[in-house]
Design a protein around this nucleic acid. Structure first.
Lengths: 263, 263
DNA sequence: GCCCGGATTTGATGCAGGTCAATGCCCCGT
DNA sequence: ACGGGGCATTGACCTGCATCAAATCCGGGC
C-alpha cells in the first residue's frame, strides 16, 4: 500500500477526526486488494467481515428479489461502503460488484468496532457517516416515489454537472443499462427519456451528454436541495455522508410549469 | 414527566447502554409535549433542534416535491426520529406529522451531540441506531424498486402479522390513504390490490384484515429477510435500528385540545 | 482493418397503475 | 335524528412504462 493511499484514507471524513492511534490500529489489520471488473465483492445475505474503502475504480451496490435486480448505488473513489452492516456486525442487504478494475482497502470489522469503543471522536465520525448515508437513502426514496423517470434523468444530469463542476457537458461513467437500473427504469426507457429531453437542450453522444440549455432543463427537472444533493464532491475525497446516493444541481430553479393533482 | 416514561426512554436501545450520567444530562434539558392529531411537528427544510422520542401515539414522516407528497415512514412508540439530522446538525429531509394524539419527548440536539462526545458507549448506540435506520431505508428502496404494488401490499400484511404476532388477523392502525402512500400507490389502487388478494385468502373489513390462507399469501408475496424485517417488535420498546421503515401502531384515535407540559 | 457479441436505439404492443368521476359509507357535530 | 364532509370503493378511461422484437452501433480481439 502506497503512502499516498494511506493519506487518501486518512483524509476521509471517517478518519480525519480520529486519533492517530485509532487510525494506526484500524489500518494495521487492513489490506489492499485489486479486483478485476465484474467481480462480486459481496453477496447480499452474506456476513460482513470488512469495511470496504474504494480507492480506485467503480463499484455498484445492488439488490435482488425473485429474479429481478436493481442497482441501488454507484460508488466512486474515495468512499467507504457497507459501514452499516459492519457497525451492527450483521449480514449485508446489498451485493457489491466492481464495474471496472478496482483498488479497495479492506479493514476488519472488529477493528472498526473496537476503534469506535476506544475513540469517541471516531465514533462520532462513524455516526456522521451513517447519518449521511441514511439521508442519501431518504433522498433516493423521495426521488423514486415523487418523480417520473424523465424527471429523474433530468435531475441526475443536473446533479452530475453540479458535482463535477463540468461546464455544459456530463460524462456518463458507466454503462447506460446500469444507469437505467439506478434510476429505476429499463434501458429502453432511458433511451426514450434522453430523447424526450432533446427539446430541453440535451444531446447524447456515446457517453458524453451535453446540456445546451440549463435553464430549460432545470425548469423541467425542478431540482430540490431536499432531494438532490448538489454539493460538489471535493476533488478526490468524498464523504459517504450525505453523498451515498445522489446529488444534484445548483439552486432551485424559478417556478414553472404547474402540476395538476387533486384540484 | 412520569417516572414510567423515563423508564421507557431509558430502555430504548439508544440509551440502554449509556452511562447513567449521560442519560441524566441528555434528559435534563428535555421536555415532554403533547400534540393533537394532525399537528405538523417539523417541516422538511427546517433546521432540527431536537431529537424526538415518540412515547405515545403515531407519527408519519413524509416528503413533498412539486405539489406531490409521499409518506416515507410511520412510527409507533417507542421510537426516536430525525436522529440523522440531529447528528449532522442540519435541516430535516422529511416532514413529521402526528396521525393521532401524541406524547413526545424532545431532547435538545446539543445535548445529544455533547453526550456522543463524552460517552463513547452512547456514541456507539447512536451509530447502531443510524445503521439500523439506514438499513430500513435500503429495505424500503428494494421493496419499491423490485416489487409491484400488490406484492408490496401482500408483504406489508405478512410483516404486520409477524411483528405483532397476531394470529390470522391484522389491524390497520391508520387511514388507508396513508397506507397507500407509504406503499407507493393511490388509495384507489390499494382498494383494488386488496381485492386482488381475495383469492389468496385476504378479506378486509374496515380496519381489520384477516389472512385466511397464509401459505397462499406467502407464495405470492415471497417475503425475503433481506427486504422484509419480520423481527417482532419487543412489546413496548423498539429500536429504530433496522425498524425505521414501517410499523403501525395500535392506537385509538382521539383528537383533543392542545396541551403543553414541561418536564 | 475485419469480425463478433453485447450494448444501445427504435418501433410496436400490452399492462400496471394513475386519473377522473360517481356513489356509498362512516363518523361527527348540531 | 338529521345533515355534511371526508374517506373508501367501484367503474371507465388513459398514460407511463415494461415487454418483445428488430435493427444498428460500438469496442475489443485477432
Amino acid at each position: 500500500m502506497r503512502p499516498s493511499d494511506l493519506d487518501r484514507v486518512q483524509s476521509l471524513p471517517l478518519f480525519a477526526d480520529a486519533a492517530p492511534e485509532t487510525f494506526r490500529v484500524a489500518t494495521a489489520g487492513a489490506h489492499l486488494q485489486r479486483f478485476p471488473s465484474g467481480t462480486t465483492l459481496l453477496m447480499e445475505g452474506d456476513p460482513v467481515d470488512f469495511l470496504y474503502v474504494l480507492l480506485d475504480g467503480q463499484v455498484e451496490l445492488h439488490g435482488t428479489w425473485n429474479d429481478r435486480e436493481t442497482v441501488l448505488s454507484i460508488l466512486r473513489p474515495v468512499s467507504t461502503f457497507i459501514l452499516a452492516a459492519v457497525v451492527l456486525d450483521t449480514d449485508a442487504l446489498m451485493s457489491a460488484r466492481t464495474l471496472e478494475r478496482c483498488e479497495i482497502l479492506m479493514i476488519p470489522g472488529d477493528a472498526i468496532r473496537t476503534a469506535m469503543r476506544l475513540d469517541s471522536r471516531f465514533g462520532m465520525a462513524v455516526s456522521r457517516d451513517l447519518a449521511g448515508a441514511f439521508r442519501g437513502m431518504v433522498r433516493c426514496n423521495k426521488n423514486m416515489k415523487l418523480r417520473n423517470s424523465t424527471e429523474r434523468l433530468a435531475n441526475y444530469l443536473l446533479t452530475q454537472r453540479a458535482t463535477h463542476n463540468s461546464g455544459g457537458t456530463v460524462r456518463l461513467h458507466h454503462e447506460k443499462r446500469v444507469l437505467a437500473s439506478l434510476l429505476g427504469m429499463t434501458p429502453e426507457n432511458l433511451s426514450r427519456s434522453f430523447a424526450a429531453l432533446q427539446p430541453y437542450g440535451v444531446t447524447v453522444n456515446g457517453s458524453v451528454v451535453t446540456l445546451g440549455n440549463l435553464t430549460a432543463l432545470a425548469q423541467l427537472a425542478k431540482p430540490d436541495p431536499l432531494i438532490d444533493n448538489h454539493a460538489p464532491r471535493g476533488g478526490d475525497i468524498v464523504a459517504e455522508a450525505d453523498a451515498e446516493v445522489w446529488s444534484t444541481a445548483q439552486g432551485r430553479a424559478a417556478p414553472s410549469i404547474v402540476r395538476l393533482q387533486h384540484s
